[in-house]
Structure formats: C-alpha cells, structure tokens
Amino acid sequence: MKVVVVTACPTGIAHTYMAAEKLTEAALSQGHDVKVETQGAMGIENEITPLDIEEADIALFAVDIAVEGEDRFGSLKVVKVPVAEAIRNPDAVMTQLGRSVSAS
C-alpha cells in the first residue's frame, strides 16, 4: 500500500515531527511505501506532490489543526487521527489504514 501522510499540530514543533517519525517507522515495518509531509513551525516540509497523490492508495492526516492545501487530496480516501494517537499507536493507525483501503 502506498500512503501519503500529513502531520501538523498547533505549535508545529515537537509533536508534528514525532508523529511523522513514528508513522514512517510503522508504515515501513508493515511493508508500506510512505511519504510524510510535515506542516510545522518551519512551514511545509517534504511536500507531497500531485504525482505522490496520484500514486497513493490512501491519505492519512495526523493533525490537530486544519491541513494546508487539503483540497489537493480530493481524489483520495482520507483518514484523520489526532497527532497524539499517531505518536502513541502508530502501528494500529497503519493497520486501520490497511483496513480502510481493503474496504474501498
């Protein structure tokens, strides 16, 4: 499964990047292809491109604020989880995504 992920929290510092790291590790350990865009204090980093979206099976927003450019993901099923959930239970979040793709 190819997953595109956006992480963002209100301050855009620690939790945004912690969620990105945990979700990347969980996705790779489950054999998924993943690209994570962070929307933090430094702005958008590792921006997800139109090609990334076209090739993706699903999008995950691990966010506590609105996603900048959310309309880019209109062609994908989007699953949203709080940042804290992504940090605490990244494997469960990735498993949930797999089920969502299978159910589509």
Rank of each mutant, 00 (worst) to 15 (best):
V6F: 02
V67D: 03
G74D: 09
R99D: 12
V93G: 03
D71R: 11
V4S: 01
I53W: 06
E45N: 14
T16A: 04
F73A: 08
S102I: 00
K2Q: 10
A84R: 10
V79F: 01
M1L: 12
I13F: 06
G31Q: 07
V83M: 08
S100L: 00
M42Y: 14
C9R: 02
I65N: 02
L76V: 07
R72Y: 04
V3M: 03
T24D: 10
D33Q: 14
D91K: 11
K80G: 01
E70C: 00
D71F: 10
A62S: 15
D71K: 14
G43H: 11
I44T: 15
A66S: 11
A8K: 03
G43Q: 13
A27M: 08
S104R: 13
E54R: 13
G98K: 11
D33Y: 02
E25M: 08
A26D: 11
I87A: 06
D64M: 04
H32V: 01
V93W: 01
T38E: 08
E55M: 14
T11H: 09
G74T: 09
A84I: 11
V63D: 01
I65G: 01
M94C: 07
L23F: 08
A62Y: 06
E45T: 15
R99M: 11
I13C: 00
V83Y: 09
G40N: 12
N46C: 14
V67E: 01
D52I: 05
T95W: 02
H15L: 02
L60S: 08
S75V: 11
N46A: 15
V6P: 04
V6H: 01
C9A: 05
V93F: 06
M1E: 00
E85L: 11
I13V: 15
L60D: 06
N89M: 09
T7W: 06
A27N: 07
I87S: 06
C9D: 10
A26S: 13
A56E: 03
E54G: 10
V78E: 05
G74V: 07
G74C: 05
P90M: 05
P90S: 01
I44D: 07
E85A: 13
K80A: 05
I87C: 09
V67F: 02
A19P: 09
T49S: 15
T95A: 14
K80N: 12
D91I: 10
T95S: 12
L28T: 14
K2I: 00
T38S: 15
A27S: 14
K77I: 07
E55C: 08
V5L: 04
E68K: 12
L76Q: 04
E70G: 05
V101K: 11
E85M: 11
F61C: 06
A84H: 05
A8L: 06
A26M: 08
A66K: 13
A41C: 11
F73V: 08
V81E: 09
V78W: 04
L60R: 03
V34W: 01
Y17W: 06
K35A: 09
G31P: 13
K80I: 04
I13M: 12
V3D: 03
L97R: 05
E21G: 00
A103W: 06
R99Y: 09
S102T: 05
Q30R: 15
A27V: 08
A19F: 04
V5S: 02
F61H: 07
T24Q: 12
A86P: 07
G31M: 06
S104G: 14
A86N: 07
A103I: 02
K22H: 08
V67A: 03
M1V: 09
T16D: 03
T24C: 05
E70T: 03
L28A: 08
V78I: 15
I44G: 05
I87Q: 08
